[in-house]
Computed example of a mutant assay.
Amino acid sequence: MRNLRITLAFRGCAYHGTQVQKNALTVTEVFQDALEKVLGVREDIKNCSRLDAGVHANQFDLNIKTQSAIPCDGLLRGLNACLTGDMAVLAVREVPEDFHARYSCLGKEYLYKVHNAPIRDPFGAGLVCEYPFPLDEGTLHRAAQAFVGRHDFAAFCSAGSSVEDTVRTIHSFSVCREGEMVLFTVAGDGFLYNMVRILVGTLLDVAAGKIPVEALPEIIASRDRVRAGKTAPACGLYLNRVFYQLPLEDDAP
């Protein structure tokens, strides 16, 4: 029995998240269909993460255990021939038997894209969050440092989450500008339900003058979702990297 780690990239616009659902098209279903065409059997899939509808991925890892003898490069070519244009397999690798895409993960990095211009980009529809008002990326970067470190992020978790432990460690949080695009990049050991989108939404509320920068530590300490900012739209969010070894920077597809 072989254990294979498969790395995907996908545009999430057409999908209702990653988990298989009865009445909606999902990333896992589409990938599993392609995998079945190549292998001739419907293998069980272990995903690295659960993403919401409309969220994208520059790196999304999963693993399968299979008796197929197809070489990794042949499987990569076969899968890409069966997948639609909004999804691609970046790599297929043999890994130890105990590797699990979710439980072996040491951390993740998310990227959030904000198109910051008075006129929306029609070619970015579904791929970026539109924000027409001025943003000072330097101020936002400094404000984002309030989230770095180990904190209880209960104030930045959407209602409905069943997670009891809301303490997470944010390793880094940067905000930078590339032309009209403002990029929020946050890496940590784990994230709560909608946590990144609420962190970004809170920073956008700081930019709008709705939340004072100095109030961020108090909001974290309050554990009160009402005190944090809005939830930024799913369209701007990308799972950017998934880390499986230390140092984190060395693990890329």
Rank of each mutant, 00 (worst) to 15 (best):
D165E: 09
A143P: 04
D165I: 00
C157N: 13
D152N: 13
D189K: 08
S158F: 02
L192P: 15
E180G: 02
V148M: 08
G149P: 11
L192Q: 12
A146L: 05
S174Q: 07
R197S: 07
V175S: 08
G149I: 04
A159V: 15
F153Y: 11
I170W: 00
A159S: 12
S161V: 02
Q145M: 06
V196G: 00
F173C: 09
H151K: 14
G188I: 06
D189G: 10
A143T: 05
G149R: 12
S158P: 13
F156K: 03
M195C: 09
G188M: 01
M181F: 09
E178Y: 07
C157G: 08
V186R: 00
I170C: 10
V163F: 11
R142S: 03
I198V: 10
A143R: 03
R150H: 08
M195D: 01
H141E: 12
D189C: 08
F153K: 01
E164P: 08
V163W: 13
V200W: 00
L183K: 10
V148I: 07
C176W: 01
M195R: 13
H171Q: 05
S158T: 12
C157T: 11
G190N: 08
H141I: 11
V186N: 00
R142K: 15
G190M: 09
R150P: 04
F153Q: 09
V196R: 01
E180R: 12
D152K: 12
H171P: 02
A154S: 13
L192S: 07
V175K: 11
S158W: 04
V148C: 09
V167N: 12
T185C: 12
R197Y: 03
F147S: 08
H141Q: 15
A187E: 05
G188E: 00
R168H: 07
N194W: 02
C157V: 06
E164I: 03
A144F: 00
